[in-house]
Nucleic acid binder design. Structure first.
Lengths: 151, 151
DNA sequence: GACATATAGTTAGTTATGCAACTAATATAA
DNA sequence: TTATATTAGTTGCATAACTAACTATATGTC
């Protein structure tokens, strides 16, 4: 059917995502060592709000590749830590717009530096060209698996 | 320090692992559609036992990149479903050797086919050379982040 | 305007993850 | 041989994931 037949031993490492997991763990560790209490999942939400504040929960879910139930709970926890607040949209009261608090704002710079540091640790001795290939391939993998759902 | 400085917008997609997540979701969906009740995490353990039965929990944790607590619970659930059994090692009674049951054995062929199908879906129009680059880079990322822990 | 449908978000239930503290068994050192 | 340290596994606690069922608001059609 396709020419991508895998030898048994190759399958697992591709699916497993061990590199992604290792990056996530290292970033979490770097956060912890810097005294930051947030999880990388929480950070992924803040990351998008720093780029554009006041997104709806659904839009945040889309941008962070989460379903709405997961997004709800993540924002519950962020709200508990007083990093974001939910404000119902005036136009459509079904919609919660999520806004950063003043507590969250100073975290932007330091978490960005720690993320950058983490990526430098992860990508030692890997060339820009290789990184480009990886990013390109992973994007196409994602597209292969999500565009079909629309048919 | 390093030459791998990322533009802000590039950071997230690399760390996020959206492609890995998409592959995992698709594989889970393909399992479900085939009437299989197992999670991909459970499958990842079975996968290694099919290659070599009777591994210790610690060894299974190493091969599936999990800590021992996660491994314990995963095997709890596999045991509940009667897919594996724990047998204490005669040489060292601290060690649990994990063995496949007769219930688990017929799953090997079908899950392998479903995993293969999933990879074919994921890797449409991606060349063998590109896949090689990705595998190689992800392995080096993993090594970059784990070898340091040994110092 | 009333009824059916769609949308945004929440909740319940199950599985999985990581860390830290713990138990039991084994190995090492005095 | 007794005390100490190490190792394999378990348990408690917190966060997070997905599915499915639910509530509340909005939209569309007759």
């Amino acid at each position: 059917m396709s020419n991508n037949q895998f030898k048994r031993g190759e399958l697992y490492s591709v699916i497993n995502g061990m590199a992604t997991t290792a990056v996530a763990r290292r970033l979490q560790k770097n956060f912890r060592n810097a005294g930051l209490e947030i999880t990388i999942e929480q950070w992924s939400v803040l990351y998008h709000l720093w780029k554009e504040d006041g997104l709806s929960q659904l839009e945040l879910g889309n941008r962070t590749f989460r379903d709405k139930a997961s997004t709800t709970r993540l924002i519950d926890n962020l709200e508990k830590q007083e990093l974001v607040t939910r404000i119902a949209s005036k136009d459509d009261r079904r919609i919660n717009l999520v806004y950063l608090t003043d507590t969250a704002k100073p975290l932007q710079q330091i978490t960005y530096e720690l993320a950058n540091k983490t990526m430098n640790e992860a990508l030692q001795n890997i060339s820009k060209e290789e990184i480009e290939v990886v990013k390109n391939v992973l994007q196409r993998v994602y597209d292969n698996l999500t565009s079909k759902d629309l048919i």
